[in-house]
Computed example of a mutant assay.
Amino acid sequence: MEFPINLSVFGTEINTHLVTEIAAFFVGFRFYVFKKKRIQDVFSWEQRMILLIAAALGALIFSRVLGALENVEAWKSSPDFWMYLYSSKTVVGGLLGGWLFVEIAKYFMKLKASSGDVMTFPILLGLFIGRIGCFSQGIEEMTYGNETDWLTGMDLGDGVIRHPLALYELVVLILIGVLLVVLQRKQKLSEGMQFKLMMFLYLLYRFIAEWMKPHFPLALGLTSIQIAILICYLLYLRTILYLIIKPKNTLYAI
C-alpha cells in the first residue's frame, strides 16, 4: 500500500482527506437531523439552533488553539503566526470547545435538560469518516504514530514501521458505538449519560494515544491535548466516578 491514497476523478487527483472531511460534516449533520426527528425534543427549534451555533463556534476556536499548542516551538518559529493558528486543528479541541460553549449557552438561556445524547452517534459517525481520510494521507497527516515493532505496525509512507493511530481510532470508535448501543437497549443509560460516556471513553483513548505519537510536551511532560483532557476530567469528576463506580443496575445522569 502506497501513501498518500488519493482519489482520481477523470484523471484529476483529489485529496481523500478533504473529501472525507466534508463528508464527515455533511453525513454527521444529516444523521443528527434524522435522529432529532425521532425523539421528543425538550428544546425548541430556536434553542437547538443557538446550541448548534455555540457548538460550532466553540469547536472552531478550541480546535485551532489546542492544535497550535500541540507544538509551541513550531508555532513560535512559524513565519505567519495567524496562518499557523488557523491551519492547526485537533478533534479533541473541537469536542471540548463545542461542549464548553454549549454549556455556556445553556447557562445563559437557563436550560437544565441534557442536550448531548442526540449528538452522540452523529459525532461518532463523523469522526469515523474523518479518520478514514486521515489514514489515507499517511505521514502527511499529523495522526501517524511513533516507530513500533508491534504486529499492527505499518509503513505509512516514509519506510518506517509506525503505529497506524487512525486505524486504532476507527476500532475504538466502533467499540464505543457498540457499547453504547448495548447499554441503550438494556436501558442502562439515563438522560445525558450516553454523551458523557462517549466523551469519557474517547478522551481516555486520546490521552493514551498521545504517548504513541510524536510528543511535544507543553507542561509537566504532558501535551496540550493531555492537559485539556485532564482539566475536563477534573471538571466532571463526579460524573466520572459514577461511570467507574456505578450503581449495579443503572447509570445516573449528573
Results as ranks from 00 to 15, higher is better:
Ser78Leu: 09
Ala113Arg: 06
Gly11Glu: 12
Ile161Phe: 09
Ile39Cys: 08
Met154Cys: 11
Ile22Trp: 02
Leu189Asp: 03
Leu189Ser: 01
Lys110Val: 12
Leu165Ile: 09
Ile14Arg: 00
Leu189Ile: 09
Gly97His: 07
Leu204Pro: 09
Met119Tyr: 10
Asn146His: 06
Trp45Gly: 14
Lys106Ser: 05
Ala59Trp: 03
Thr223Glu: 11
Lys35Leu: 15
His163Cys: 05
Leu85Phe: 12
His17Tyr: 14
Trp45Thr: 15
Val171Ala: 15
Phe135Cys: 07
Gln184Arg: 13
Ile225Leu: 12
Ser77Tyr: 11
Leu197Arg: 04
Ala105Ile: 01
Gln194Tyr: 04
Leu237Arg: 09
Ser224Leu: 01
Asn146Phe: 03
Phe31Met: 11
Thr143Asp: 14
His17Gly: 10
Glu147Asn: 01
Glu191Gln: 14
Phe200Trp: 10
Thr20Asn: 05
Tyr242Cys: 11
Val19His: 00
Thr90Met: 09
Asn71Phe: 04
Leu230Ile: 12
Pro214Gly: 02
Thr90His: 02
Ile123Glu: 00
Arg238His: 10
Ala56Glu: 00
Ser115Val: 02
Met49Arg: 08
Ile132Ser: 05
Ala253Trp: 06
Ser77Ala: 15
Asp158Cys: 08
Leu51His: 09
Ile254Gln: 13
Leu167Pro: 04
Asn146Lys: 10
Glu103Phe: 08
Arg206Tyr: 03
Gly221Val: 07
Phe195Ile: 00
Val118Ala: 05
Ile104Tyr: 10
Ser44Trp: 07
Leu183Thr: 08
Val91Met: 13
Glu103Thr: 10
Tyr144Asp: 04
Ile225Val: 14
His163Val: 12
Asp41Met: 13
Ile53Lys: 02
Phe101Asn: 04
Gln187Arg: 15
Asp155Gln: 03
Met142Ile: 09
Gly67Lys: 02
Ser224Asp: 04
Ser87Arg: 13
Gly192Asn: 03
Glu141Asn: 14
Arg131Gln: 10
Glu141Met: 13
Phe135Leu: 01
Ser44Ile: 09
Lys110Gln: 12
Arg238Trp: 13
Glu13Ser: 09
Val9Arg: 00
Asp149Glu: 06
Ser44Ala: 09
Lys36Ala: 14
Gly126Cys: 11
Ser190Pro: 00
Ile22Gly: 01
Ile245Arg: 12
Leu85Ser: 01
